[in-house]
Write a protein that binds this DNA or RNA. Structure first.
Lengths: 148, 148
DNA sequence: AGAAGATGGTCAAGCAGCTTGACTATACCT
DNA sequence: AGGTATAGTCAAGCTGCTTGACCATCTTCT
């Protein structure tokens, strides 16, 4: 393995990931949802049954104070609401509102459009599926939020 | 194309990109270079012949003031130096120092190690090359710095 | 050549999004 | 019951970026 090979892969990976995030964000905004990419990362943890602030913090790789502030923003914009936790009176369950679900569906649609475009460059949908499977094999667990 | 397919690909892509950046950063730090991931994105533009602050700003997708502050940091830590531009007295050429090159080589080594590990998960180096080629096909030009 | 605008770079101030620190309320363990 | 761990919030501070203003130099037009 030559080092330059690894750097080329790194560059391509970051370029594609950045492009994808940017285009999903732009598309969601174009459909009338204001926000920033961090919202989407949060939504993937809040769907389908909600989560506590602490769980969300771990998912995003930030402190619980940081996650709490993000939730406050999401509440103010109507994407989520805080409910009492059914089993733990200390905790509060953060769940998506209908508008939050609509935003999530919009993000899915945009992602599907972008990936659709990749089918052309790669030769077909089978190649896209293969790409996803390869990436899934090397994907770690842990926080989804990119750390840079 | 189902939407969930696209979301799965998105999640895998971001997870892999985040993991890769994190591990390169950790590895570089472990080899005695202090910094943050943005340094690496800058180095890819400064190598091999240097660049102006404005060029760097475009590469990173930030304002020239932001790029200028980053360069100031890099100068303070000994990774780059500012030189007069050979053809334009307004501009200054930012070039890597020997320590900057050493840091770049360290990053290459770490990236190669990480990618080496992927060979096992994917089945071999041929699969890694195939992955890189597929990503290169859908990678955009434009700024490398992820925008979130 | 001279004037007018474009471009490279920096200084200064402001802000968003995160952090650390301190605190309260509730849960769990013995 | 008492002691410790955990969920969450409030407050203050910091980092890395932004916008705005400015000067020096290059380029273009007349």
């Amino acid at each position: 393995m030559q080092n330059s090979e690894a750097l080329g892969l790194t560059a391509a990976l970051l370029a594609v990931a950045g492009e994808l995030t940017q285009r999903i964000h732009d598309g969601v905004v174009a459909r009338g949802f204001e926000g920033r990419p961090a919202y989407g990362f949060a939504f993937t943890r809040l769907a389908p049954d909600g989560a506590t602030v602490t769980e969300l913090a771990r998912h995003l790789g930030v402190t619980k104070q940081g996650a709490s502030q993000l939730v406050e923003e999401l509440v103010a914009k109507g994407y989520v609401e805080r409910r009492p936790h059914p089993r733990d009176a200390r905790a509060r369950l953060v769940v998506l509102t209908e508008r939050g679900w609509a935003c999530t569906r919009a993000a899915e649609e945009v992602a599907a459009e972008v990936v659709e475009g990749w089918s052309g460059a790669l030769g077909g949908e089978a190649e896209v599926r293969a790409l996803r499977e390869q990436l899934a094999r090397i994907a770690p667990y842990g926080p989804i939020r990119p750390a840079w």
